[in-house]
Amino acid sequence: MADRELSTTGYLILGLLADHDWSAYQLAEQLGRGVAELWPSADRGRYAVLNRLSDERYVQTRREHTGKRARTIYSITAAGREALAAWLSTPMRPPTLEFEGMVRVLLADQGSVDDLRRTLAQTREQALANREMFARYAAYISTTGGTFPERRHLFALANTFMIGHYEHIVAWAEWAEAQISSWPDTVSPAITNGDQVREMLAPGRDALQGDAPDA
């Protein structure tokens, strides 16, 4: 067993190697096919993670030559499969969100209303592009089985979540654009638009009341 637990990226790489042997470059290609949107840090420090997996003997390496070029190929070991299976049986951490656009919304009172409108427009456009990307993945997996046809039922679960995730962002951005359409700036609505603010917060209050136990 390892002296310390692997990172989620380490287990992700083990999962990619569970059905295919890959070079570091090929692993980067796989991580770039929708995984970055789900786990943004997946490709950071990839070589360090691979070195750690090798040190723990969770992966083994071999050299392959294509002409004069050599590359290192990684494959999962029995110990790596055991570690991956053990991790899948443990409790997971709560979901987190890395969303620069929302940080800009929270700090928008330090900029102009045009800055805020631009943030919302860019958020909508980026979400539309990502939704389209996952829609193309869905079509590709549906017609060809994808790179991992033996996992396409699992990819279908994840793909549906990601499309719904970006649909939610698109809907929120369009709603937010409508909310701020008459704002003269990003400061005064805190005072002048009290009724609007209370209406925007109503779904949260209603959800809290819905969770309250019956008297």
Rank of each mutant, 00 (worst) to 15 (best):
R93Q: 01
A78L: 15
S142C: 02
I169Q: 10
P213K: 00
Q196W: 02
E37S: 10
A127M: 03
A83G: 01
A207N: 03
T119K: 09
S7W: 02
E150S: 14
A2F: 08
S188L: 09
A48W: 15
S7C: 01
R62M: 02
R71T: 14
W183N: 03
L50C: 12
I163H: 01
D19E: 15
Q30V: 14
A129W: 04
R71Q: 15
R151Q: 05
W22N: 13
A178T: 11
M133H: 05
R44H: 15
P184Q: 04
Q26C: 00
S23I: 12
T119R: 08
F161D: 14
W87R: 09
G80E: 11
T77Q: 06
A190G: 02
R152C: 08
L106V: 12
E150D: 12
R69E: 10
R117I: 07
D114H: 02
T147M: 03
T90H: 12
S7T: 14
T61V: 11
E98A: 06
L14N: 01
V113W: 07
A24W: 13
R198T: 04
Q196F: 05
T66F: 12
Y166H: 04
E132Q: 13
R52M: 03
D3K: 05
R62T: 05
G10M: 12
A108C: 15
S89N: 01
N193I: 00
D21Q: 15
I191W: 15
R4T: 14
P95V: 14
H153L: 10
Q110G: 14
A79M: 00
N51W: 02
A212N: 03
Y140R: 08
L12Q: 02
V113N: 06
A138Q: 07
G111R: 12
P95D: 05
L6A: 07
Q209A: 11
H65G: 04
S41Y: 06
L157A: 04
R117W: 13
D185G: 13
A2D: 12
V105H: 05
W172R: 02
A215K: 05
Y74M: 11
G101Q: 06
T90K: 15
A28Q: 06
M162T: 14
S188Q: 10
S75W: 03
Y11H: 14
R33V: 06
Q110D: 10
T77N: 03
Y137C: 07
A42G: 01
G204A: 12
D3Q: 04
A42I: 01
A78P: 07
A171G: 07
P184H: 02
R118N: 04
